[in-house]
Design a binder for these strands. Structure first.
Length: 463
RNA sequence: GGCGGCGUGGCCGAGUGGUUAGGCAGGGGCCUGCAAAGCCCCGUACUCCGGUUCGAAUCCGGACGCCGCCUCCA
């Protein structure tokens, strides 16, 4: 049984499935108007891990995550860059997937694009106008939140108190500052789609409710995203669905944000680091390990220091992979080692790690248990229990693999010169010519290698 | 103002009332020709003030500090 904190209920509860054995899961994807930043990296990693874990548990997961390819931000960016909205969306969607591939986030099963669902959106909006839940103003169509009984469910407070805190609204045609745009009429030169109530473009909240219901159907299992989407975005998605008497997501989960110093990283604060930049100078696996080492609902600091810390921890795992000659498991692919054979000892490890992960995706405890198993494996091998060490190492590899973290035994290819030096050093050591052996080691170090000796000879690796 | 969260050893970061979190860094040792890697040992921490309890980092009350949402935001 998988348990997960539910933002609507405010407690950890069982993830109940509409169809036993199958998980339908939706994550709001990016608006493609800029490079993805570390916050995008965090939420995609968190839910990639969840998806992988569900899959490892034998569940058939259908994961849908959209691309918002029409939005005010895209229009503004196109104006700024003196190009078209289509060009901006295409450019940054490409950047998005490139970053996702680098960071090892598996592609969703479906990636609906908002512009491909406009017909469904206008149909929905028309029905809102008909029922009176939606209303026209001079600049678009708005949704009357007072028409939804339990509006504020996700925000955790009633409509009145939300309204009390709302900031002064520029648009005085809205009945309430909490009402949101379903549709925005196009200004001259802006991209627009035809609609009986006036040509224009859909509002963000309408895009996601339409796409999630279209692909996953009413009452799908799990809707996820970053905490900052909980209100108003997710609240508004839900409001639209329930105002039509439709079942929406049965379970809501939100992931914590990335902090910069003591502030949340966000587009509006302008304090973001692009994921693309990070991945250029860092092993992407370090970011995944950093994310895994904290709980998904807690804020994390991503700084050069915390990344370096994760990189050194990763080194310990790669050293294990090298010592036991572990095969690198599939990175971006969602493959699960279903044919893994557990021994009594590794079975217990799997049980322990699994219990942590089943309980609100407690990756920090799971990772701690795996690091303990690394020590156990090394100790076993040190004592000459090679088979036992190997079994443990294989299990650690399989379980990290289930979380999408690849252990690498050789991440760097040895060039001819280095290979020659290694061979010469083996010869020097064999003949106990220590001076020559040390000289050759110095040469290898100068070439950027870390030299390690063992009974079977010299091995080299990058630091 | 409303709602929610956080405050743990040098750093990062878990924590279900009592028994080792884990990682990184640091110190000592084993191993090694010397190293590296690995292994063993070492820190006795929980913002503050009360309270409950045989016993609290963990529960209750209060104080202080910090953060987030209520506006676009993962």
């Amino acid at each position: 049984m998988i348990r997960l904190f539910d933002s609507a209920r405010g407690e950890i509860c069982e993830l109940r499935l509409r169809d036993p054995g199958r998980v339908s899961m939706y994550a709001c994807g990016p608006t493609v108007y800029d490079l993805p930043h570390l916050g995008h990296g965090r939420y995609t990693l968190v839910w990639d891990v969840a998806r992988r874990w569900f899959t490892f548990r034998g569940l058939d997961v259908r994961f849908v995550s959209n691309i918002t390819d029409i939005d005010d931000n895209i229009i503004n960016r196109a104006l700024r860059d003196d190009t078209t909205e289509t060009d901006i969306a295409r450019t940054y969607e490409h950047q998005w997937w490139a970053a996702m591939d680098l960071i090892g986030v598996a592609r969703p099963d479906d990636t609906p694009h908002a512009t491909k669902f406009v017909a469904e959106m206008t149909e929905l909006i028309a029905s809102f106008l008909e029922s009176g839940v939606g209303y026209l103003t001079s600049d678009g169509v708005y949704f009357d939140v007072s028409r939804v009984k339990d509006y504020g469910l996700l925000a955790g407070q009633p409509l009145e108190s939300l309204r009390a805190g709302a900031r002064v609204e520029a648009n005085d045609e809205k009945r309430s500052p909490l009402d949101f745009a379903l549709w925005k009429f196009a200004k001259p030169g802006e991209p627009s789609w035809p609609a009986p109530f006036g040509d224009g473009r859909p509002g963000w909240h309408t895009e996601c409710v339409v796409m999630s219901l279209a692909l996953l159907g009413d009452g799908f299992d799990l809707h996820v995203g970053g905490f900052d989407l909980k209100f108003p975005h997710h609240e508004n998605e839900r409001a639209q669905a329930v105002s039509q008497g439709r079942d929406f997501a049965q379970h809501w989960s939100h992931s914590g944000w990335v902090m910069v110093g003591s502030e949340k990283m966000s587009k509006s604060l302008g304090n973001f680091t692009s994921l693309t930049d990070l991945l250029e100078k860092t092993d992407a696996r370090a970011y995944r390990l950093l994310v895994l080492r904290s709980h998904y609902r807690s804020p994390i600091e991503v700084t050069p220091a915390t990344i370096a810390d994760a990189e050194r921890a990763l080194l310990r795992l790669d050293t294990l992979a090298r010592r036991f000659d572990l095969a690198a498991l599939a990175g971006n692919a969602l493959e699960v080692a279903t044919d893994f054979t557990w021994t009594e000892e590794t079975g217990k490890l799997c049980e322990k790690v699994g219990a942590y992960l089943d309980n609100d995706l407690d990756t920090p405890l799971a990772v701690a248990a795996l690091f303990e198993a690394v020590s156990t494996a090394n100790t076993a091998a040190d004592k000459g229990e090679d088979a036992r060490g190997k079994e443990l190492a294989l299990a650690v590899n399989a379980l990290f693999g289930a979380l999408g973290l690849q252990l690498l035994s050789s991440s760097h290819h040895m060039d001819d010169l280095s290979a020659t030096l290694v061979a010469e050093r083996d010869e020097a050591r064999f003949t106990k010519n220590w001076a020559e052996a040390d000289r050759l080691r110095d040469e290898l170090v100068k070439l950027g290698w870390v030299v390690e000796d063992s009974a079977s000879g010299t091995t080299i690796r990058k630091p």
